[in-house]
């Protein structure tokens, strides 16, 4: 008697866990946003002929739970369900500087049931460093979801009032000021500055949290992070943001943007922003592609999505498939040049 109850319970637990791990998780069925300003959902469009989608669609996030990309993906998933007529299930596949998840997404069956939401980093930098099993030709680009803005932040004790003062000091005192950063994109930026004659010491921290701690604790002079990571410290005067990027989306009172510094814009403008977009494997049938494009477009128009993305500090920003692909290719070439030159 006891044995049977036990077995049944354990099987239940195992099933529950399979659900949790995302294999067809009904628990992940996105809750419709209930923010007061949301319109009631529009009538669902009739599904295309061969009834796609018939089961939940996986949205692979190549990083661990809790990162900026992960939370953005969950926001997208929560708002996309009704437009896809199936739940979008976020599936974290971290590792290998984001390449393991991207590999899985690109090697999946091109049936429209596996997509990925990712910063362009693993597409443009990783091919030159960790040699993943994919390249740009394997990718179908849907659209960008957001554009991650960067903040150039200094320790207020340094006393610089503007980027110009900082650059002038760096030119006269090479390899003195230390920049904390935590990803390859910002490492590229430091290399590009070096090429332009501004030599900083690169201190590669393991993550955004450690980078923020380093600038708050005065262990480094400068940090390159997302705006969201340092905004709280800036407001309290514990760190000073000298410049932000993506002026169309992100603005902090009294802080100039990269467009106010033409020289900086010329050196870093092409690479400092982080496009976050949705990609899939090549070879998805044309009607399904159209369906996904349409569903994404509607998702991005949701007030709930726009509001939540704004609060995350990753405002909605969509350039379209072609521009997304072009920008990725441009970043790829820059990264290739710098990495070949330094290694």
């Amino acid at each position: 008697m006891f044995k049977r109850t036990f077995l049944i319970m354990m099987i239940f637990v195992a099933l529950l866990m399979l659900g949790l791990s995302g294999c067809g998780a009904p628990e992940e069925a996105p809750a419709p946003p209930v923010s007061p300003d949301t319109e009631p959902p529009e009538e669902a469009v009739a599904p295309p002929a061969e009834e796609y989608p018939r089961s939940p669609i996986f949205l692979i996030v190549p990083g661990g739970a809790g990162g900026g990309t992960d939370v953005l993906a969950r926001v997208v998933a929560a708002n996309a369900g009704e437009h896809f007529q199936q739940p979008l299930v976020v599936r974290n596949v971290p590792g290998g500087e984001f390449t393991i998840g991207i590999t899985e997404a690109l090697q999946s069956e091109p049936d429209g049931y596996t997509l990925a939401l990712t910063p362009s980093d693993p597409l443009v930098f990783a091919p030159h460093t960790v040699a993943p099993e994919y390249d740009l030709e394997d990718i179908y680009f849907f659209d960008t979801v957001s554009m991650g803005a960067a903040a150039l932040t200094i320790n207020p004790d340094l006393g610089f009032e503007s980027v110009d003062e900082l650059l002038a000091y760096a030119r006269d005192n090479p390899n003195e000021l230390r920049i904390a950063q935590s990803n390859l994109r910002f490492e590229m930026c430091i290399e590009l500055l070096r090429d332009a004659g501004y030599e900083f010491v690169n201190v590669p921290f393991p993550g955004g949290a450690e980078t923020t701690a380093a600038i708050a604790g005065g262990h480094v002079d400068i940090s390159l992070t997302s705006v969201a990571a340092v905004q709280g410290l800036h407001d309290a005067g514990m760190a000073k943001i000298l410049m932000t990027t993506v002026p169309d989306l992100v603005n902090i009172d009294g802080v100039p943007t990269i467009e106010d510094y033409p020289e900086m814009n010329e050196i870093l403008g092409a690479i400092i922003d982080t496009p976050l977009g949705i990609i899939g494997p090549k070879g998805i049938p044309e009607e399904r592609l159209q369906f996904i494009h349409e569903a994404l477009r509607k998702t991005f128009e949701e007030d709930g999505f726009i509001a939540m993305a704004n609060r995350l500090g990753l405002p909605a920003f969509h350039v379209g498939a072609d521009a997304f692909e072009q920008q990725t290719r441009a970043e790829y070439e820059i990264a290739k040049r710098i990495i070949e030159q330094t290694r």
Binding site: A65, G66, V71, T212, A213, A216, G232, R311, L312
Partner: peptide
């Protein structure tokens, strides 16, 4: 300080930020 000390704290940070 907005600095998550662990992976789970990072998720809590995300939730907090989403709440404005």
């Amino acid at each position: 300080l907005g600095i998550p000390g662990s992976a789970i704290a990072a998720l809590l940070l995300g939730a907090l930020v989403l709440q404005g």
